[in-house]
Every structure is written in C-alpha cells, then in structure tokens.
C-alpha cells in the first residue's frame, strides 16, 4: 500500500452518496442489505423517514495529529465560567470536553464525538416514562438544536443510555462516575462547533450526518484497529481487551 500518498480519510468518502442519493439507493435495491447488516432495521427506517437534516462533527483521521486542542476548545465553550456575573469561556479542562481523543500505539488518534444518530439508540434506551406534555424521557433530542440533552432532575443515573451508545454506536456517552448521569453529548456549540473552528490541522468539519460514511457511528477501538492495519500493517494497536 502506498501509505505515503494517503492524504486524508476524505479518500474513504469517495464511494459515499449524498443523503438524497442514499435514500434513493436504499429504495431501489442492494444498499439496504449492507446497511441492515451494519446497523439493523432502524437505519433503513431512519433513512427513508425524511427527517430534517442533522449535522455533526466529522473527523478526518489522517489529518488528526492527536494534539487534543479540540478537547480544550470544547470544554472552554461548554464549561464557561462566571466572573462577576459575566459568563466567559472556561480554561478548557479536557475533563469536561464532549469530544475526546483516543490515542493508540502505534500512533493512531481517534477523536470520539456524538454521531448525532437520527434513530437515537441512547434516547430509546432511557427507561424514564415520557412526560405527558413534552413526550420527553429524561434523555431527549431537542427539537430546535437536534442535540441530545439530559434532564438531570428526572434522570435515574441508570447508565442505560451509555450502554446503548457503547453497544450500538461510538460509546461517546460517559456516565458521571458518581451519579451515573450521562455526559459528553455534543451541543454543536449552537451551530458553530469550537472543535472544528480551533483544530490547527483542519481535521474536523461540520457536515450533514450520513450514515453511509466510512466509520460512521463506530467506536474508537474499531476505527483504530482498521487504521493501524492500513497505516502500519499491524493488528496490535494497543487496544484494551
């Protein structure tokens, strides 16, 4: 393999379709079978449902250098501080970042961030009875921002959402160690994701969710395994068994 020439994982995207084309494709044939294999029947339902377009942060793994500036930028925005009544960006403690870079040996860095799944396995896993007025469980998708929120007052801290996310998608949702309540759902920073804006290497972009993208919704270990094999020809990438 000519690894030196591999410029970016953008090249993984060559065979993908726009969402519209994708929906069409699913309608007429073979693509659906592949998707059924990877994501199950819900994905087809989602793809055909014609939901409003969702946006997400997309990673170009070949461009990512593992510097974690995205973590600091995310935390700074989403964990503001209050100084004399004025809200200011925080100091960027990565503990509070919703995006998180997973680093492996040999060097593969996989920023992990909410995939903005249209079919929300996390929300579906929430056992809290939907509110009679809003229809919301404790975990819900906001109608305006389309991001996932947790109603801390109603949340049981049962970790079901995190388990569903880990089993079916990226595993980005992390329960707070003490309360079990979910953390790290991407806020998209009100439509201007700071991780995208601050990445010094242009590795992040803000794009439409498309489930047929290479690596969409996969956990970091799975992505790292494939990249380590592609880039370094090794199956041992320091993943945790």
């Amino acid at each position: 393999m000519d690894k030196g020439k591999m410029e970016s994982s953008g090249s993984y995207d060559r065979t993908t379709l726009t969402r519209r084309e994708f929906i069409k494709g699913v309608g007429i044939g073979g693509g659906a079978l592949v998707l059924l294999g990877q994501f199950g029947v819900h994905s087809v339902a989602w793809a055909l449902a014609g939901d409003p377009a969702l946006n997400m942060v997309l990673i170009d793994y070949a461009k990512c250098t593992g510097c974690r500036t995205c973590e600091a930028a995310c935390s700074s925005r989403n964990r503001p501080v209050s100084l004399k009544g004025q809200e200011l960006p925080g100091l960027g403690n990565p503990r509070y970042a919703n995006i998180r870079v997973h680093s492996f040996n040999p060097d593969v860095d996989v920023p992990n961030v909410c995939a903005m799944c249209a079919d929300t396995p996390c929300v579906k896993a929430c056992p809290v009875e939907p509110d009679s007025k809003t229809g919301r469980r404790a975990l819900y998708r906001d109608n305006v921002t389309h991001t996932i929120h947790n109603d801390s007052a109603r949340c049981l801290g049962c970790r079901s959402c995190a388990k569903a996310c880990a089993a079916q998608r990226t595993g980005v949702i992390s329960p707070d160690p003490a309360t079990g309540k979910p953390e790290r759902m991407c806020t998209l920073c009100g439509g201007d994701p700071q991780c995208v804006k601050r990445c010094p290497f242009g590795a992040l972009s803000y794009v439409e969710v498309r489930r047929d993208r290479k690596f969409y919704g996969l956990g970091p270990e799975k992505i790292a395994a494939e990249l380590a094999k592609t880039w370094y020809g090794t199956a041992d990438f320091g993943g945790l068994k």
């Binding site: 030196g4 591999m6 250098t65 510097c67 974690r68 010094p200 290497f201 020809g233």
Partner: peptide
C-alpha cells in the same frame, strides 16, 4: 522520509506544529 516512511504527523498536547512523525 516523507516519501518512503512517514504516514502520520503527530503533535504533543495543544501543539499546532506536529513535528513528530510516525510510519513504517
């Protein structure tokens, strides 16, 4: 090295330089 070896530019914490190179 860029031609024959390096696969990735790697950076340290919050560094925009990425002077570390890994490859095979």
């Amino acid at each position: 090295a860029r031609r024959d070896v390096w696969v990735k530019d790697i950076a340290c914490y919050c560094c925009p330089l990425a002077c570390k190179k890994s490859g095979m």
